[in-house]
Simulated scan of single mutants.
Amino acid sequence: MFTIGDFARLGRVSVRMLRHYDSIGLLRPASVDPHSGYRFYRADQLRRLNRVIALKELGLTLEQVRAIVDDAVDVAELRGMLRLRRSQLAEQLAADTARLAAVEARLRMIESEGRMTTQDVVLKEIAPARVAELSAVAASYQGEDIGPVIQPLYPELFRRLSAAGVNPTGPAIAWYEPADAGGDAVVVHAGVLVDAEPAAAPDVTVRDLPALRSAATIIHHGAMDDVEPSMQALARWIEDNGYRTDGFAREVYLDYCADTPEKGVTELQLAVYRD
């Protein structure tokens, strides 16, 4: 038999862990010296230890681990536990992947700060436009909340327009407005220019997007995930020239590249005014 120290090294765990497993009845020593209190383990106990470690690394609780290694759960229950854990890990991976993408986008934003100047901003009037649109609500105006909401809207919008025999006459346009006073939620509008009457597509809203008497505009090149430097240039221009804005930009997709978003060209339009 092996001392607790030797057994810990063989199992590549700590002595402290083995003592804890003993205290909760998860892995008892094969024998304990009645005089010294020293714990001794057999080689065949490594099999149980390895199963315990493997199940623990899956994220199962020690109570769940004990039930499994003691054969207190049947195959169906074990399968259900492992499927649930697989689902949890998949959700965690998706969340971590989304956070990683957001961090990378912020890094790109920081690295590109200062490349766009306020000289790229043009102040102009935006004419009214007839658009067909679908809308949905996003949790906030942050890119990670907007993207998953707006992206499915456009394929569905074009599908419905095609079914109604209505053809777009210009680029797609997105715009935003608060969903409720004082909250973070945002109504996301996905639209496209059309020359059609309001009743032309029954399951699509056809409306006139109002004119903007004065708008600060800038051409953004690249994916919308990397739009922050362009928004920063707009913000600096607005502040430098004594204007105010509500911060919600219209996005006119002059060249939309679904498969290669980094090649996209978008005009950002911010309505501005002076007090």
Rank of each mutant, 00 (worst) to 15 (best):
L26D: 07
D246V: 13
E144W: 05
L268C: 07
A172K: 00
R130W: 10
D96W: 09
L60E: 09
H20F: 14
A164M: 06
Q45T: 07
E57M: 09
Q92K: 14
E228Q: 12
G183E: 14
L84V: 09
L153Q: 10
R39W: 07
T205Y: 04
S23I: 00
L234Q: 04
V188L: 04
A174Q: 12
Q151L: 14
R66W: 01
S112G: 13
D208T: 15
I126E: 07
F40T: 03
R12H: 13
G59Y: 06
A76K: 15
V194E: 00
I150N: 00
E104Q: 13
H20D: 06
F7I: 01
S112M: 04
R42W: 10
Y141A: 12
L193S: 12
G114Y: 03
E267P: 11
G59R: 08
R28H: 02
A54K: 08
A105I: 02
A105R: 15
A211D: 09
S214N: 12
G165T: 04
G37E: 06
G80W: 09
R85V: 00
G114V: 03
A185M: 07
V187G: 06
P29Q: 06
L82M: 06
Y38L: 05
I218V: 11
I4Q: 03
Y141V: 08
I150R: 02
